[in-house]
C-alpha cells in the first residue's frame, strides 16, 4: 500500500543542503542548480508577462470596483479607476459584523492548525524513528487519506457533529479540519525528518536523551522549514475553507469569512462594489502576511511539495 498510494513523494535529493542554502540566502542568491540561461529567452518572457496579466486583471478589477460608489459602478467604464474613490463600501462591510467573522476565522484556523501540527509532528517522528507493524500500519492509513477525496465523508461527519451536539459551534469546524490536515502534514514532515542524519540522534542518545527530548531539541529545529511550510499550507486551507462551515454551521455568530462572503453576496446582490469590498477585506490579512513572509513561504512550499 505504501508504494502505491504515496502521492507527493518523489525521492529526497540533497534537500537538506538546498533548503539550508535557500533559507540563508533567499531566492535571489545565485543558484548552482537548475537550468543555466545565458541568452535571453524572449518567448518565455512573453509568456511570463502574459500570465501575469491573466493573474492581475481580475484582481485589479476587484480592487478598482470596490472603490466605486454604486452610481459610478453602473455608469463608468468597468476597467477604469473611479473618478471619486470612496471607502463607503468598506465601511458597509465592516459595519456588518465583519470583525466577528474575522475573529471566528482566526479561532478556527489557529485552533485547527496548531493541534494538527503538534499531533502530525509527533506522528512523523514516531514513523521515521520508530519501528514496528503498528507504525507502518499508521503511516499507510495516513497515505490512504491522501488518495481519498475526504469531502465524500461530509454526510457522516454532519451526523456525528449533530449527535455530539456540536452543530453550529466553532469546534464543529475545528475537529474535522484537524483530521483532514493530518495526512499531508505527516507526509511532508516525515519526508524532511528522514534527512536528519542518524548520527545526531545517536550522539544525543549516548548523552542520555529521551525520545521526547530528542523530538523537541533535535528533530524540531532540524525540520523547522517543513513545520512552517505545513503550518502555512494548512492555515490557507482552513482559513479559506467553505464546505465545513456551509454544512456544520448556520447562525451569524458562528459564521467564518468565506461563508460571510457568500451571504454578503446574497444580501447585497445589487451592490456589487460592496460585495467586492468584502472580497478584498477577507483577503487582506493573508496578503499582509504574504508580503511580510513571502520569501520563507515560497521557499518553504516549493521545498515541501517537491520532495
Amino acid at each position: 500500500m505504501a508504494s502505491t498510494t504515496q502521492i507527493p513523494a518523489p525521492p529526497a535529493r540533497r534537500t537538506a543542503l538546498s533548503n539550508k542554502q535557500g533559507r540563508k540566502q533567499g531566492p535571489r542568491a545565485k543558484r548552482t542548480k537548475g537550468p543555466g540561461r545565458f541568452r535571453p529567452n524572449y518567448l518565455g518572457g512573453l509568456g511570463g508577462w502574459l500570465w501575469l496579466a491573466i493573474i492581475i486583471v481580475p484582481i485589479y478589477y476587484v480592487v478598482v470596483t470596490s472603490l466605486k460608489n454604486q452610481a459610478g459602478f453602473f455608469t463608468s467604464n468597468p476597467m477604469m479607476p473611479p473618478t471619486e474613490p470612496t471607502l463607503d463600501n468598506y465601511k458597509l462591510v465592516l459595519d456588518n459584523d465583519f470583525a466577528m467573522y474575522f475573529a471566528n476565522s482566526l479561532i478556527v484556523t489557529v485552533g485547527s492548525v496548531v493541534p494538527a501540527l503538534l499531533v502530525s509532528f509527533m506522528a512523523a517522528y514516531a514513523i521515521v524513528r520508530g519501528k514496528g507493524r503498528f507504525l507502518t500500519w499508521t503511516n499507510n492509513t495516513f497515505l490512504l487519506g491522501l488518495a481519498i477525496p475526504l469531502h465524500a465523508t461530509i454526510i457522516p461527519i454532519y451526523w456525528m457533529i449533530t449527535k455530539a451536539h456540536l452543530y453550529d459551534t466553532l469546534l464543529a469546524l475545528i475537529l474535522p479540519s484537524i483530521a483532514f490536515a493530518i495526512p499531508i502534514s505527516v507526509l511532508i514532515l516525515s519526508n524532511f525528518m528522514r534527512d536528519v542524519p542518524n548520527e545526531l540522534f545517536e550522539s544525543m542518545r549516548l548523552d542520555g536523551c529521551s525520545d521526547w527530548a530528542m523530538m523537541w531539541r533535535l528533530a524540531l529545529p532540524m525540520t523547522r522549514p517543513a513545520v512552517v511550510t505545513v503550518g502555512i499550507y494548512n492555515a490557507l486551507g482552513v482559513w479559506n475553507g467553505f464546505l465545513f462551515p456551509l454544512i456544520l454551521t448556520q447562525s451569524p455568530s458562528t459564521r467564518v469569512l468565506p461563508l460571510s462572503l457568500w451571504t454578503f453576496q446574497g444580501e447585497f446582490s445589487v451592490n456589487i462594489p460592496a460585495v467586492l469590498a468584502s472580497v478584498v477585506l477577507a483577503t487582506l490579512p493573508l496578503l499582509v502576511i504574504y508580503v511580510v513572509a513571502r520569501r520563507q513561504l515560497l521557499s518553504g512550499l516549493t521545498a515541501g511539495f517537491s520532495k
Partner: peptide, 26 residues
C-alpha cells in the same frame, strides 16, 4: 528500539474518528 508508537496515537485517533470512521459511515 526507537520512540514509542504512542507518539503517533493522537494523530491516528483524530484521523480514524473524523476520516476513516466517516468513510465506513458513508
Amino acid at each position: 528500539k526507537g520512540p514509542s508508537g504512542w507518539l503517533a496515537a493522537p494523530a491516528l485517533v483524530f484521523f480514524l474518528l473524523f476520516a476513516i470512521i466517516p468513510l465506513f459511515g458513508v
